[in-house]
């Protein structure tokens, strides 16, 4: 359905640096197609990142996030070999969860 979310989680200084690249069109609903018909909005509304069952980041988005969204943040704790999960949900109810191992 959609391409996997690319996740890079790197342990450093007692914390974890997380870089996420999601595959999503992020249509604003403002654009028109070649025939002049409006292209319906289709965008990620929520992104949640969990580690050991704990939410480490929760993001709510509007249409202004760029296509194929990028997200970077750091959280404390987390060791090499543990996993984090990234879940996004869009305005059409589509949802995707991907997992990555902390390096």
């Amino acid at each position: 359905m959609t391409d996997p979310t690319r996740i890079r989680a790197t342990a450093k200084d007692g914390g974890v640096n997380v870089k996420v690249l999601m595959a999503h069109a992020m249509e604003t609903g403002q654009r028109k197609d070649d025939a002049g018909k409006p292209i319906p909005a289709h965008y990620i509304q929520h992104v949640g990142v969990t580690w050991q069952g704990k939410v480490v980041l929760s993001a709510t988005w509007g249409t202004a996030i760029s296509k194929n969204p990028f997200l970077e943040f750091n959280f404390k704790g987390g060791k090499k070999g543990e996993t984090i999960q990234v879940t996004w949900t869009d305005n059409k109810g589509e949802k995707r969860t991907d997992e990555a191992t902390i390096n």
Binding site: G15, M26, T28, Q30, K54, V55, V56, L57, S58, A59, T60, W61, G62, T63, A64, I65, S66, P69, F70, L71, E72, F73, N74, F75, K76, G77
Partner: peptide
């Protein structure tokens, strides 16, 4: 928030305890 976009609010991030209050992303203007 981007003042002159069609809708101003671009994103909101909840920062739980233990997460650094720092985020990076890319937006449309």
């Amino acid at each position: 928030l981007i003042a002159k976009n069609p809708t101003a609010l671009a994103a909101s991030f909840d920062i739980p305890a233990g997460t650094e209050p720092a985020v990076s992303t890319r937006v449309k203007m």
